[in-house]
Amino acid sequence: MRRNTKILIAGAGAAGVLGLGLFAAVPAGAAPSPEPSTSASPDKGGKRQAYRWAARGARGVHGEATVRRDGGFRVVTWQRGEVTGRSGAVVTVRSADGASWQWTTDDQTRFRRDGEKSRLSAVRNGDQVIVVGERTGATRTATAFRVPKD
């Protein structure tokens, strides 16, 4: 009986690793996702989880995932790269693969620099950043903007 339990636990672990790999790989190769529904309320938990995933050593440079929340859909998006420009509340970030996205910030955007609370005014060209937010149409709105410690 003990051997069956070990096999069951090992199988469940392998299935979890496979599921995580598919979660990371499939959205990158999938066709463009449909526009998100505006009927759903914002999902702070989903964005927070995406931010943690992007910030904790994930090696990807940018990505999106369509998530179902409260009967609607949201496109959660993230990017790791270098700040190449800033105009008002819009920050342009270029990833290592050359993708350049513009991120709109607002009064709800949280900024962190070197582990401390910060502001948009502290973001400079050349900063290496991790940005997480939502995409609605062609507009990416940043929820969290992080300049990690060097």
Rank of each mutant, 00 (worst) to 15 (best):
G21H: 08
G21N: 11
G21I: 13
L22Y: 03
L22F: 11
F23G: 06
A25P: 03
P27E: 03
G29L: 13
A30E: 09
A31N: 11
S33V: 15
P34I: 03
P34G: 10
E35C: 13
P36S: 04
P36L: 03
S39C: 13
A40P: 05
A40R: 09
S41G: 15
D43L: 06
K47Q: 06
W53V: 12
A54S: 04
A55G: 04
R56E: 15
G57A: 02
G57E: 03
A58V: 11
G63R: 02
R68S: 11
R68I: 10
D70G: 12
D70N: 11
D70S: 13
G71Q: 04
F73T: 15
V75N: 14
W78Q: 09
Q79W: 00
Q79L: 02
R80G: 06
E82V: 13
T84R: 11
R86A: 00
G88P: 00
G88V: 01
A89N: 11
V90A: 04
T92Y: 09
V93E: 00
A99K: 14
S100V: 06
W101N: 08
Q102G: 07
Q102T: 08
D106Q: 04
D106A: 04
D107W: 09
Q108Y: 07
F111T: 02
F111N: 01
R113M: 02
D114T: 06
G115S: 01
E116M: 12
R119D: 15
S121P: 10
A122V: 10
R124I: 03
R124T: 09
N125C: 07
G126P: 03
G126R: 07
G126D: 11
D127V: 00
Q128L: 09
I130S: 14
V132K: 02
V132S: 14
G133N: 07
G133I: 03
G137E: 00
